[in-house]
Amino acid sequence: MEPRLNFFKHGPAAMSAMVALEKQCGASGLEKPLMELVRLRASQINGCAYCINTHTADARNAGESEQRLAEVAVWNESKNFSVRERAALEWTESLTQIADSHVPDHVWERVEPHFAPNELVDLTLLVNTINAWNRFAIAFRKLPA
């Protein structure tokens, strides 16, 4: 596979908007390790090699263990994630696969008790932002280094 287009070079205004979204995500009160798990799981679902590579490394740097990183893809079968992390990962999957799930009430009912209202907005922005990054990287074939 060959890269198609350098979207940073050819879309500086669009990338500036994406970077602003990232800054907003970073300014949220969400825990850094949780944010990296969310980014990694969405990237796994979307099949974004570049983002999986990036967010696996970022998660390691945030203190994630190799075992938890290996189990993100099967978080619902693992006992190594907290209730809050499990809720965030379920929210991530439902939003990432929104055409299939339309974020059903049972997902909301499992997620909502574990996050303050502003955190739910921040988590949703995070999921949407990584999904947007995945789509740029996949569409233009951005490859891991």
Score class of each variant (00 low, 15 high):
A88D: 09
K9L: 10
W133Q: 03
H55M: 01
T129P: 14
R60G: 12
A62F: 09
L123Y: 10
N118C: 08
D100T: 03
L120V: 06
E22V: 07
C25T: 13
F136E: 01
N80A: 14
A42S: 05
S28I: 03
G63C: 04
A139D: 04
E85T: 08
E93Y: 00
Q24M: 11
N118Q: 10
E90M: 10
S65R: 01
L126R: 08
V111E: 01
E64I: 00
S94Y: 04
G11I: 01
Y50H: 07
S28Y: 10
V83H: 14
K142L: 09
P144H: 00
L125I: 15
R39Y: 14
S65T: 15
A14N: 03
V83F: 14
P12G: 01
T54P: 11
T92C: 10
A132F: 13
N128D: 13
P104R: 00
Y50I: 00
L95G: 02
P113K: 01
F81A: 01
V127R: 10
P144I: 02
S94L: 11
V72I: 11
N53C: 09
I138H: 09
N46L: 01
K79G: 15
E119C: 07
A62P: 12
G26P: 11
F81E: 02
T96V: 02
L95W: 02
E90L: 14
E36S: 11
Q44G: 05
